[in-house]
């Protein structure tokens, strides 16, 4: 197949309050591209809309959220045009996702095997027995010792590291094309975090997965990804190849982020080195949302939101400083 695996164009998702009076632009005019087998890191502070973006791709949003515009081309077809049933058959089968807290994502009342076999049974109509055999193999493939006994155990009988591996096994159970991992390392300690990243990388290599890696940790992105997209207040402020952006960040926000890179394993939730607070997503500042915290703020930034400028081959930035007409 030619063309990218995933091509997102001008996607916007808004949260509307119960009385319809407050609109939060959680995802605002986001465009991005993901190639077969590629790795994309989406970076941003909490509340910048990363998770909403991921859930929008799967069209699995809370009732208050509305996808207001945009197209999501996956393998050439627009996911926005698919029926609920069709999109459900893509979830877990073609596009899988690992949630923020892998420890809490297993249902305590069902056995591991049941939960791993579930997507296989639902998506492929496999019989109970064959799905269980597949589940056992999957556990083996994520390097769980004695998978034949583990399938019959309940989540609370397993260690945290094992539970993560099982969540990983569930994600790859139907051989998806894309795996989205949402802040998979926030709740983990150093060693487990490193193990987990290795697991994701191995899965990607063994199954030729495209990986979308959502995190606040630029250090991890540097290690894991080949493309990066930086989100701020619902918008992609800068995107492009990792190496290019790390060497020559165009957006002041990216620059600030890079200056404050926490080392791998640093568990700080927020990047504290940038002055000021992230904006209230429900009431972002006018103009460029970053302007109150921007060290290079200009008058224009306070009133006018910058469009996407192409600063280099495959690198874009939403900053007036990148405007080729003024540079």
């Amino acid at each position: 197949m030619s063309g990218p695996l995933l091509d997102v164009r001008h996607l916007s998702t808004h949260y509307v309050s119960a009385r319809g009076t407050r609109v939060t632009r959680a995802v605002d005019d986001v465009s991005l591209v993901l190639d077969v087998g590629g790795t994309l890191g989406i970076v941003g502070e909490s509340g910048s809309g990363k998770t909403t973006l991921a859930l929008t791709l799967l069209r699995l949003l809370p009732p208050a959220a509305r996808i207001v515009s945009g197209e999501i081309f996956f393998e050439g077809a627009d996911l926005m045009k698919k029926s609920d049933g069709e999109i459900r058959r893509i979830r877990g089968k073609r596009i899988a996702m690992i949630l923020q807290d892998p420890m809490m994502s297993l249902n305590p009342l069902f056995t591991v095997g049941d939960q791993v076999a579930e997507p296989i049974r639902v998506h492929e109509g496999a019989s109970r027995g064959s799905a269980w055999n597949r589940a056992t193999e999957l556990l083996k493939s994520v390097r769980i010792a004695a998978p034949e006994t583990r399938v019959r155990e309940y989540p609370h009988q397993l260690s945290g590291g094992m539970r993560q591996r099982i969540v990983g096994a569930i994600a790859i159970s139907c051989e998806p094309r894309i795996l989205i991992a949402d802040e998979p390392t926030t709740s983990l300690d150093l060693t487990i975090q490193a193990q987990y990243l290795k697991l994701l990388r191995d899965l990607q290599r063994d199954h030729n997965l495209a990986l979308i890696f959502i995190t606040h940790n630029l250090g991890i992105v540097a290690k894991m990804c080949d493309q990066v997209a930086v989100m701020y207040a619902g918008r992609l402020v800068e995107a492009g190849p990792v190496r290019q952006i790390y060497n020559a960040p165009a957006h002041p926000y990216t620059q600030a982020l890079l200056e404050s890179i926490p080392r791998v394993g640093d568990n700080r939730k927020r990047l504290t080195a940038i002055d000021g607070q992230p904006p209230d997503p429900a009431a972002p500042p006018p103009g460029c949302a970053f302007h109150p915290r921007c060290p290079k703020v200009m008058d224009r930034c306070r009133s006018e939101a910058p469009p996407e400028f192409r600063v280099a081959d495959a690198q874009t930035s939403r900053c007036w400083l990148s405007d080729p007409t003024t540079r």
Partner: peptide, 24 residues
């Protein structure tokens, strides 16, 4: 989280509720 995961697995909503939510 586990109900979210059940939905991410692509289970039909009826199964999500009757199996994963109901018992818990």
């Amino acid at each position: 989280e586990y109900v979210k995961l059940a939905r991410l697995k692509g289970l039909p909503e009826a199964l999500v509720i009757s199996k994963h939510a109901f018992k818990n």
